[in-house]
Simulated scan of single mutants.
Amino acid sequence: MQVWIGRNGERFGPYEEGEVRQWLRDGTCRPDELGWYEGMTDWRPLGELYPDDRPAMGSVPPVPPPFMGVTDVAEPEYAGFWLRFGAWVIDYLILMVPFTVISLSMGLGAAMTTLLSQFENDQAAALAAYAAALQPITFVLLTLGFVYYAFFESSKWQATPGKMAVGIRVTDTEGRRISVARAAGRNAIRLVNAFTFLVPMIFYVTAAFTQRKQGVHDLLASTYVLTGRADKTVAAPAPRGGHGGSFDA
């Protein structure tokens, strides 16, 4: 079993249970430091998790040294631009199927035929009629795309099918699953893509330069895109206050 340790506002691990027990016995870890392993609902003091390995009564354990040689801070790996671009391409191809069906059922084919037949006679009128015909289609497609991204990114998978395919997921700044409201806000920002060409490029290109590889929509919604699928990643939950104390990692 693997155990995470909370110390001085940082989250370390995971470590093998035997190592943690030994550290308790020799004073490398203190009984009042917090621990967590998969299946627990909250962080608990190590002395409560492993009472048989607590120092003897009356003895004062030394101040624990740093985890020399084993300091594996649980720092997430942020998904880079090209991984995210690959996910976008896959999602785009997936959405093209319902987009095409909906567009044709709403008269896109007829609108294009009318445009071509009228273009030679009155280009301005033909283009205006075509744009008017596209408005309801565009609205439906934008709504479908919005629901697609907001639903999947707030789901237990924390990722659209495209993101799952390349092995990345969306989280909040604590590494947790985002709420429906946050997912909706994040993707509402992305809807600006429909109104200008320059801005969406800026939205995504910033992921190649920001410290945590965040796009503009990630920065505004306080989200990260991390490597690793949600169903393959075990993340220690954010510790809560209560018996034994807490820490803010």
Rank of each mutant, 00 (worst) to 15 (best):
S105D: 14
F119E: 03
I202S: 12
L191S: 13
F99Q: 13
Y37C: 10
P31T: 04
T223I: 08
E48S: 12
V166D: 02
G107T: 09
V180N: 06
V20N: 00
R44S: 03
T100D: 11
G107H: 03
H243I: 13
R30P: 00
V170D: 00
A125L: 14
V101S: 13
I94G: 05
A165G: 05
M164V: 07
S103Q: 08
Q214C: 10
D52L: 14
L198M: 13
E174W: 09
Y148H: 08
V192N: 08
W23Q: 00
R182G: 01
S59W: 07
A110L: 10
A133P: 02
L116C: 11
T227L: 05
K232M: 09
L104G: 08
W157Q: 04
W88H: 13
V60K: 03
C29T: 01
Y15V: 01
S222P: 03
L226C: 03
P136T: 05
I102M: 11
T233R: 05
W88P: 00
M96W: 14
T160A: 05
V192I: 15
T210C: 13
T138N: 15
A230K: 03
G9E: 14
M68T: 10
A56L: 12
G244S: 12
G35T: 01
V199P: 02
E174H: 14
I202W: 02
R229H: 04
M68Y: 09
P161M: 09
L198H: 10
A235F: 05
G80P: 05
E17S: 12
V140E: 00
I202C: 15
